[in-house]
Design a binder for these strands. Structure first.
Lengths: 213, 213, 213, 213
DNA sequence: CATGAATGAGGGTTCATTCAT
DNA sequence: CATGAATGAACCCTCATTCAT
């Protein structure tokens, strides 16, 4: 990287590569993996279809690398916000806020990614992108671990009490998030983030307070 | 229906039509909507691909009618089990049990359906199956209403206390269900139903018992 | 094959399948493997491009199966003509006559096949059609063996005398054939078969009669 | 050429141009015309794909000019070796030795060229490189003429006796050469040159000595 | 009704060639 | 000149849908 010329070119390349991912983000969020055509992404990014192949080897790579990038970003954002010394609920709210905010109008990408994970990866007859797929699974796992860690810490501190495992709880919270996003997508637009966060927090903290006999 | 001949033919037709849906159920559950080819369904049903068109006008109709059928069945099953005089939790458990049990190994169909709902319906350039789609949305709504009704009743009775709306809560519970199913699909097999039900119930009833200051 | 219905359908299918090979024969002979587009074959056969896939899984299969078919036919034709009791030269002439005659205007197919053999097969990254390729190599080998056998027999009988191996000689004769066909192709039309046969025979029998000192 | 600066630049340009042809020689020999991508040549030559266009107008020109260059070289080499005062067989052996030796490991280029000649040139819809193509055909013809001349001379001297035309014989000898090279390519490596030469000479001189009745 | 076959309409991918720096 | 990038033009192959029997 001593050579400034090379540095600039690398930077430009990276920038374009990112532009493509940004475009892909919008289209994948809108249409899901299968209904997205390379041409849509290209058009959205201002490139020709063939140009995409200068940056990615195929459609799957665009998708996976995008997913990895976004999950990394979210996790980074979360890591920057979390503070074990704060009360559990504050941390939780931060996480939720970030998740609902990070993508902006492309919030639905999470649904596309999640759906991709449970479907397409399984049928890999002639596996490609082994390394990327590993990262993909890893980052998705990291997100869950993040929340699980939060819960575990709170448990230790006696902040919360539950007989459920931390991983299970993290999964449940993920389910609530996805549900919220699914509602938004069905409505065709982002909902109110604050409401979403509060509702989830409210639900998490005490459920529906069943009167135990 | 006076004519017994016609009656028989109708019945046979219905039976075959159902066979196709049964097959479609298995394949859609396994592969999702887009990765399922008509030929897969045909093979699974013991028909030729072309024969499917004697019973359904296109792939989308197979899918939608299947979804409607299954949701109707579930709701019917649930309706048969629910009893407003029973405690809320008992009813809730019944619902969960039915949902997790109804499809058997095809549990993942719910995920496919749910994913279809948030995606494909939106892009209806040249809308088809208006009526079916209406039913589709309706039945999916009904399922939510079912749970919402349960909650509303319990609220009125003072069994549960929460500031969250019944519809919101119903949605959340749906999210927990989907999350559980997604885990199963990722694992490649059904999980233990009892555990699933209990975990969700545990979570619903009291959340994670945050120590309120 | 007891069922006449099935028998007929099989026959029709076989007939169409053959039509495609016939068309492929013409196009491959004209343009070689790489410059032949599926669409050309389809048009030549009176089908749409997609229809070819009802009969063959891909372009390579069309080509290989065609090559196998033609070599089998030629060998069969040769086998029917050869008679070990006849003088070597008569047999040789029969072989040459058949080879130059068999394809008619599609004589150049032999060149396409031969060129394919020495090139494409080698680079099989993700091998397909293993069995067909085996047959392909086998039949091409058979043709050589045929001639080699002829020579070997003549040698034993003392009809011919040469210190060269039969396989080598068979190869050389193959070279003479190909050269003749190449000339024809360059000219854009079949040449005179009788002349071709006589020239080759003349050359084979006594070479150029170098005056040995 | 008075200007030394210009002279140097011309020389450098020529040198690079040759490097590309050298690279092209290796790749075309390995993969044939169609399976060779410009990028392969560029990589082999240490240039970028686009740079090739500074020296040649397109893929076809690279190929044709290479073919012309190599055939010229071979013919020159042969011309330097031939000596009408030597016996025919000695000259013949020299020719064969040169042909089998000239390309070294790239012996298969002859096959690629020969195959190209009989195929691509025909389909010139929008003819390009007229002049080059003329040279191409000319040089290939020259090679044949070379051998034909050898034969003609020997005939006149009474060294050899045959009723076959010199051109025909030259063609046959070309066929024997190609056959040998094809065998080598199929085996994946050069064979023994001496053996090859001797076998061909043996065959040429007296064929297979059919006992004429 | 059942089905084998036919096909139009793409979709992903490749590659020779052009362009801008 | 060198080159990274851009792209038009194909081409192979898939699949939902239609048709003929």
């Amino acid at each position: 990287m001593i050579n400034p010329r090379e540095a600039r070119e690398k930077a430009v390349r990276k920038a374009k590569s990112d532009l493509i991912q940004d475009a892909a983000c919008r289209v994948f969020a809108r249409r899901g993996f299968h209904e997205t055509r390379l041409e849509d992404i290209a058009a959205e990014a201002g490139f020709s279809k063939a140009s995409l192949y200068n940056y990615y080897t195929d459609k799957e790579e665009i998708f996976l690398s995008l997913a990895v990038r976004e999950y990394r970003r979210i996790i980074e954002e979360i890591d920057g916000e979390l503070d074990d010394s704060r009360p559990f609920l504050d941390n939780m709210k931060s996480v939720l806020f970030i998740v609902f905010t990070h993508f902006g109008e492309q919030f639905a990408l999470i649904l596309t990614i999640s759906n991709f994970q449970t479907l397409s990866l399984l049928h890999a007859q002639m596996p490609r992108h082994e390394s990327l797929k590993y990262d993909f699974e890893h980052e998705l796992g990291q997100f869950g671990s993040c929340i699980a860690h939060l819960i575990r810490t709170a448990k230790k501190r006696g902040e919360i009490q539950t007989c459920l495992g931390s991983a299970t709880l993290a999964g449940f919270i993920g389910g609530l998030i996805q549900r919220t996003l699914a509602d938004w997508r069905r409505n065709g637009a982002m909902g109110d983030v604050e409401t979403a966060v509060n509702d989830i927090v409210e639900f998490i903290t005490s459920g529906i307070c069943v009167e135990k006999v």
